[in-house]
């Protein structure tokens, strides 16, 4: 049995599915980057108003449940889970070897400057399995 693989897990500020609706929509990913810069006058905790995560799944079958969580790597080195961004269910069509999905999260909380990861996990037999990490850093402009 083939194992589910996440080929891409990409953070961007905006994603658009190109119409018309279909099984193989193209996606436009806008604002792909690994640094989020907040203005100097922003006080933390702050939010990223919209964060889009583009995923390309390979070998998906049936209905699968996923969770995405935001992890903050504190400057002290301690890992702190900041937020569970949400629970998603994806239905894979029969014979669909690859599947593109874009997840949209609103008002993603940012506790402070530093390194972050958006972690995609899959529910399986009552456990969570980490499928992919997307790392980015948060900076504050001087």
């Amino acid at each position: 049995m083939s194992r589910l693989v996440v080929q891409h897990w990409i953070a961007c500020l905006e994603s658009q599915a190109v119409p018309p609706v279909g099984v193989n929509n193209l996606y436009n990913l806008l604002g792909v980057g690994h640094v989020f810069a907040f203005a100097a006058d922003v006080e933390f905790p702050a939010v990223i108003p919209e964060l889009n995560m583009f995923a390309r799944f390979v070998n998906g079958t049936g209905v699968m449940q996923f969770e995405a969580e935001l992890v903050w790597f504190r400057p002290s080195g301690r890992v702190r889970s900041v937020e569970n961004l949400g629970f998603n269910q994806v239905t894979f069509r029969t014979g669909e070897f690859r599947r593109d999905v874009s997840f949209r999260y609103w008002n993603v909380p940012i506790a402070g400057v530093g390194e972050y990861a958006v972690r995609l996990c899959r529910h399986r037999r009552g456990r969570l399995r980490v499928l992919a990490n997307e790392y980015f850093s948060v900076e504050q402009q001087p």
């Binding site: 190109v18 119409p19 996606y27 569970n84 961004l85 949400g86 999905v101 997840f103």
Partner: peptide
């Protein structure tokens, strides 16, 4: 296929295709 271009009034997450193919999640 490339599909049709996005009309300005359907851009920014309001197109039919966005509604179907972009999954919005609420924080738990």
């Amino acid at each position: 296929t490339l599909g049709t271009p996005i009309r300005p009034d359907l851009s920014r997450g309001s197109s039919e295709a966005d509604g179907v193919n972009i999954i919005e999640a609420q924080p738990l």
